[in-house]
Design a binder for these strands. Sequence first.
DNA 1: TTAAGTGCAAATATTTTGCTGTCAC
DNA 2: GTGACAGCAAAATATTTGCACTTAA
Lengths: 151, 151
Amino acid sequence: MPLPQTEVPGRLQAQFTERGIRMTQQRRAILSVMETATKHLDAAQILRKAQRLDSTVDRSTVYRTLRLLKRHGLIDELDLMHINGEGHYYERRLGRDHIHMACLRCGKITEFVSNSFEKLKQQVEKDCHFRVVVSRLEIGGYCSECRGGAQ
Amino acid sequence: MPLPQTEVPGRLQAQFTERGIRMTQQRRAILSVMETATKHLDAAQILRKAQRLDSTVDRSTVYRTLRLLKRHGLIDELDLMHINGEGHYYERRLGRDHIHMACLRCGKITEFVSNSFEKLKQQVEKDCHFRVVVSRLEIGGYCSECRGGAQ
DNA sequence: TTAAGTGCAAATATTTTGCTGTCAC
DNA sequence: GTGACAGCAAAATATTTGCACTTAA
C-alpha cells in the first residue's frame, strides 16, 4: 500500500508529460521554481521567482497552476502552524511524508521523517477504515536552540 | 444588560478568570459559541452565532478573540485539508490531541484519538530535541462509505 | 480611574473569476 | 484548427488596523 519509491528526484515536468498535461512556458517557469526551491514558499514568493524566469507569468496563473499541482498530488499545501500570519506554503511532494516542526520563537522550520508516522497512518487506515491519500503533521514548539531557560 | 446566558459557564470562561484575562460581554458570547460548538466553525460562522447571543459583537472582535484564545493555547486552528477552500476552522482544545480525517469525496470530518500519535510526539521530542507545544495531524482520503469501487 | 477592549470604517492580504486573445498539440 | 491556457482587471474573501468611544476591574 505505500507508494512505490520510484519517484526519480528529477522533473515535475516529466510528470506533466507522463500525465498528458499540457506544458506552457509559464508552467515551466513555475515548475522550475517548485523544483529548485530550498525552502517553503508562499504564492507571492512563487510568483516573484517565476517572474524572474518568465516575466509574463501572472498571479492568477500561479494560483491555477498550484491548484493543478495539488489536484495531481505533486505538491503539498502547508500552514507551518501559522507562525507568520494566515498564509499558505507549498512544497514539492516527494516519496516520503515528513513532519514539519515550527519553532514558535525563532521561526525555524525543521523536517523529520519517521517510521512511526508511517505506522500511525497505517493504523488509521486499519482502525478507521479510512483510505489515506494525503497527510500533514505540523508541530509548533521550541527548537533545541530556543528551549533553554524558562521555555 | 445581562446576557440571555442559559448555559453553565464553561471551562473556557473559567480559564479566562484563572489567567486574569478581562471578561467582556462580547468575549462571553464568543466563548460560549466555542464551548457549545458541535462542529468545526470558521470565523464567519463564529461571528454569526456570537451575534445571536450578543448582537453588538463585531467581526474584528471575533478575530481579536480568536487570536487571544490561540495565543493561550485554548483553541486550535485547522484547515481540514482545505476541502472547502482556503479558510480556517477553529475548535476548542481539550485535553487530548486528535487526528482529523477529511473525506475528499463527501467532505465528512472524522476525529480519531490514538496512543500512537502521542508516542510519535514523544519521539519527536526525544529525537529532535524539540519541545512540542501544539500539534496538528490532518489526513485527506476516503471514508469507509466513499471508498468503494475505483477510489 | 484607567488600561484594556470595542465598534466602525477603511486598509491589507489573499484567492478566484469573467473575458478575450493566444498557443500547444 | 481547436480546446486548453494565458494575462488582465475586477470581484470575492479573509484578516488586520487606526481611532475615538466604552467598560471591566
